[in-house]
């Protein structure tokens, strides 16, 4: 992480250009890959790319479904799929490519920005509350979410909703941010003292990169799983 960031203000809001570029690049990569994979679909698959796409969708659908019933899960499958692919690509992006211009990082993992992960968490939490109201009606949703198992549970339930939102976003951010920090530290150390440290620290960098790829995949899976759990908690009366 470079300390330097490039920002601009518009209507009292701060815009971080570096993070926006990173998120746009990740979203563009996702869009291009998914649309490319979904060209020329056959009822009876003959191409490898269709098999890849179907495997991803199958995985994300299974993850999104979780313990929901099929009819409940149907409307969240697209959301779960986009979420999974976007977070996965975002997590891996910074491991492969970091573009610095004048000390400002423009291409990196957008998930290393807390605002990005909190935005996704906000989406998931908002969607779960919306689904709860839609399924149970507002009265049923309110009772199910805040007044169960006891009426005086209300403050705790309220706090739980808030902590769900925070932990969902910050878990992903923390893992990816810490991963990138460590990568940069090891990288900086490697280039600090010439050829000896480069050779000596290359394996450590390699191992940490491999571990980060693993963590990135796991975090994408965890995020979608928790999305499913939160939505299921809102739509099923306990």
């Amino acid at each position: 992480m470079n300390d330097k960031i490039s920002t601009f203000f518009l209507g009292g809001l701060t815009f971080n250009i570096g993070n926006m570029v990173a998120a746009t690049v990740a979203a563009a990569i996702v869009l291009v890959i998914v649309v490319w994979l979904s060209r020329n679909l056959q009822v009876r698959p003959t191409s490898k790319k269709q098999a890849v796409l179907e495997s991803i969708i199958d995985f994300s659908n299974t993850t999104t479904r979780g313990s929901m019933s099929d009819s409940d899960a149907a409307s969240f499958k697209l959301y779960g799929f986009v979420l999974f692919v976007l977070i996965f690509v975002s997590n891996q992006l910074g491991l492969m490519l970091q573009v610095d211009v004048n000390g400002v990082t423009y291409v990196k993992s957008p998930t290393a920005d807390p605002m990005f992960t909190m935005t996704l968490a906000l989406f998931t939490i908002a969607l779960s509350h919306y689904a709860g109201v839609k399924k149970l009606g507002f009265g049923g949703y309110f009772k199910n979410t805040y007044l169960e198992p006891f009426v005086f549970w209300f403050p705790l339930a309220l706090f739980e909703e808030f902590s769900n939102f925070l932990t969902l976003g910050l878990r992903l951010f923390g893992v990816i941010y810490a991963g990138e920090i460590l990568l940069k530290l090891v990288g900086g150390l490697a280039f600090s003292n010439g050829i000896v440290t480069i050779i000596g620290l290359a394996p450590i960098e390699l191992i940490w990169q491999a571990f980060s790829i693993f963590l990135g995949a796991i975090q994408a899976y965890v995020f979608v799983t928790l999305t499913s759990v939160y939505i299921n908690g809102k739509i099923s009366a306990e």
Binding site: T14, M115, F116
Partner: peptide, 13 residues
């Protein structure tokens, strides 16, 4: 916290 960026993320997503 860059709320403008958050807005951009929402629209982007």
């Amino acid at each position: 916290l860059a709320y403008g960026t958050m807005l951009y993320y929402l629209v982007l997503f």
